[in-house]
Nucleic acid binder design. Structure first.
Lengths: 230, 230
DNA sequence: GGATGTGAAGTAGTTCACAGCC
DNA sequence: GGCTGTGAACTACTTCACATCC
């Protein structure tokens, strides 16, 4: 019985855990029940040592000699990431992107519950997206734990302040806008594909393009340039 | 005339440069021509020292005593990120997300040129998205420098291998799938909102939630929990 | 005076190397 | 024998503190 010590996981570790979990689910689907850090590293694009360090932080999950039991791995990550809890998620901004996200199959994680869709455009309010009716952001606002912002950049800061005032503690911001001045303890993550493209443009012109011996970091993942073994 | 020494910029620095540039553009639009590291730090959610370190890496851009000239800042970042060059970008996978991205106003960066849209679904091939006709990925394939992958996870690896074989050196992957075994020198960035939500869920349950004294990193940006001083 | 740029110090994360356990 | 877990070394990034220059 491995003692549950949540400890303090580093941010890069936290961002890799969902990757390990996803791979675990895929393995389980294929009927594979065991995996070692070398293989998991290969599949996730992470060095084997780093995989071990990450998983060691979840308590002693593995078995020396053998590797990790897939089901244990999945369950433990579930637990650590807080997927046993329930979260109400609202989405603000029902343009092309907002609708695409809500309809995306991998949007809902375990524990997340979509509880409201919002917009300010009278043409959009009242329409249905993924089986929910879009509400008026200006008047109605259900309190929710997480908010996803898909508005234009100019609106994002005001939206963030409003949802935080309504009790939200975690924001996923798709608008190309840095959010500032929010109260301590508000978790914020940015998703900005314009920035991602610019980073790629940098690597194309400088060093890392063709012929560059590139170690590219993304989400904390290193692309290890696997020798095509397997 | 500041001597152009491209040097070697760190990955976190590269990911912050687009943010500074965007803020610079906004300042310019408002007629502001000078900014110092303290203010730029405030606006970008980055410590002033880090701003200076980042910008110092672009050559001596600033002036001691005064700060940075906005137009110089923008131009220099343009140059360093390679936005003076031209890139052909193709997008593979024209589902909800692919269409939303192509139609997004902030999708095209300076230098990027959309040169092809692809799918494998006969119902989608031949339709028009943002003024371009969707091609059949299985048969046609224009060579391009960058590729954006918006397919389901199961297809992503094969798509990546095919575009790389066709000459692509940079990939932006929206599919929830780690890409492995691609040749050295292929730049890859991942955008995965399922992972982002899980990271937020972690912060909600553990430490950083309500009452947590959270320093949350995103894209290398630290949310500095500004004392609401303007 | 005032803000940049940068050596030096500090902190965080990764990788090495191997002891420990199955 | 084999693979995990972890102290120790290393590398990367940030922050401090201040000399430098306008």
């Amino acid at each position: 019985m491995p003692s549950l010590r949540p400890k303090q996981l580093s941010e890069p570790t936290v961002s890799r855990l969902p990757v390990y979990q996803r791979i675990g689910r895929e393995l389980e689907r294929r009927g594979i029940q065991h995996i070692d850090s070398a293989d998991l590293g290969q599949l996730s694009g992470v060095a084997a040592t780093t995989v071990r360090r990450d998983l060691a932080g979840l308590g002693s999950i593995g078995t020396r000699g053998a590797g990790y039991i897939v089901s244990v791995l999945i369950d433990r990550i579930d637990e650590v990431l807080g997927q046993r809890n329930h979260y109400d998620v609202i989405v603000v901004g029902m343009g092309n992107l907002g609708r695409a996200i809500v309809n995306s199959s991998n949007f809902l994680i375990a524990g997340a519950q979509l509880s409201g869709l919002y917009d300010v455009d009278p043409l959009v309010i009242g329409t249905d997206v993924a089986g929910m009716t879009v509400q008026d952001f200006a008047t109605d606002l259900v309190p929710a734990t997480m908010a996803v912002i898909c508005t234009p950049a100019a609106a994002a800061q005001a939206v963030a302040e409003r949802v935080v005032a309504a009790g939200t503690h975690a924001i996923l911001n798709f608008a190309p806008q840095v959010l500032t001045g929010l109260p301590a303890g508000t978790a914020i993550r940015y998703v900005d594909f314009s920035i991602e493209l610019q980073i790629l443009a940098y690597h194309l012109t400088n060093g890392t393009g063709p012929l560059g011996g590139g170690l590219l970091r993304t989400l904390g993942l290193t692309t290890p340039v696997g020798p095509t073994t397997t």
